[in-house]
Simulated scan of single mutants.
Amino acid sequence: MHIKDRTFIISGGASGLGLATVRDLHFHGGYISILDLHAENGIAIVRELGPERTIFFETDVTSTPSLQAAVDSTAAWIAQTAKPLGAIIPAAGVGNPGKLIDRHNEPISMAQLDFVLNINLRGVLDLIRLCLPHMTTTIPTAPDNERGVIIMVSSSAAFDGQPGQAAYAASKGAIRSLTLVLARDLAQYGIRAVSIAPSYFESNMTAQMSEKVRRSLEKVLEFPKRPGKGEDFARMVRGCVENVMLNGECIRLDGATRMPSKL
């Protein structure tokens, strides 16, 4: 699928890997609808890239009414621009580590678990389901009668989760498992589904790590000997958009890194 003159809905698009994706797809001619909770950042990005091909909606991905309003407003924008929906990219995510039982023999609170699951899993499913009626009705493109693609963000934690990542690994493992199901469910509409599983990448989430944790992760890097960058992730997203044979798969983007059981 060509990027130019297609619309891309990206949640979590005002920072981190989502923002890198916004910039890359915009550079290649895409129209970008940015959904994010941080209005100041979102407004600044539209100012940076220009309002002709970017639009921002302040959105809480844990709230169905908030997501519905953003999707409806994006659909109205698409009607104005006549640039059909090409991809749904739910990139909003959080880490918030914590073991299920702490050193005082106290179980983790459900509020802490729900915080991660509601953003990383519920928010992803909610955004996809609300966007799909707008994608299934677009005019398919030759030669494969493709209508669009869903690109989700999993994690290396879906394969080798570390201590304290119960909620995070569960949410990202669910995204990994969801990928083939979506590909099969949506094949009849000419819609693909893929997910990307980055490992240690420079992002707002990893910026909160302690120096000790950072050094420990850097020791297990194979090649390249550096954390991934937003541009690396965005390039993979672009490949997923453009290569119609990428479907139903969770793609590890980790430079052969395997996360250790202990830091």
Rank of each mutant, 00 (worst) to 15 (best):
P198S: 00
Q208D: 09
L186N: 06
K219M: 09
Y168I: 06
Q208C: 13
Q208P: 02
K219Y: 04
R215L: 13
R192H: 01
S171V: 02
L186P: 03
V220A: 00
E222H: 12
Q165E: 15
Q208A: 15
L217N: 10
F201M: 07
S203D: 05
L180T: 13
V194G: 02
V181W: 09
L180W: 10
E218A: 11
Q188R: 13
M209Y: 09
L217T: 03
R215P: 06
S216R: 14
Y168R: 10
V220K: 14
R176F: 02
F201Q: 03
L186A: 07
R226P: 02
S203K: 11
Y168T: 12
T179S: 10
T206P: 05
R176Q: 11
A170N: 01
T179N: 09
A167F: 00
V213R: 15
R214D: 01
A193L: 05
A169P: 07
A183V: 01
A207T: 12
Q208K: 15
L221W: 08
L180H: 03
A193R: 01
L182C: 01
K212L: 12
S177G: 10
Q188W: 07
G190S: 02
T206G: 04
S199K: 08
I191Y: 02
A207D: 04
R226G: 12
L221Q: 11
T179P: 12
A174N: 08
M205H: 04
S177W: 11
S203E: 04
L186W: 04
I196C: 01
L186V: 03
L182E: 00
E218L: 12
V181K: 14
A174R: 07
G173R: 03
A197N: 04
E218M: 14
I191P: 00
T179D: 00
E218I: 12
Y168P: 02
M209K: 11
A169I: 04
P224R: 11
V220P: 02
S195G: 04
S210Y: 08
P224S: 06
L221F: 07
A167V: 00
R184K: 15
S216H: 12
K172I: 03
E222Y: 13
M205Q: 12
S199L: 02
F223E: 13
L182K: 05
E222I: 13
A197L: 04
V220T: 13
R184N: 10
N204K: 14
S210E: 02
L178D: 01
I191K: 05
A193S: 08
D185W: 05
S171N: 05
M209D: 08
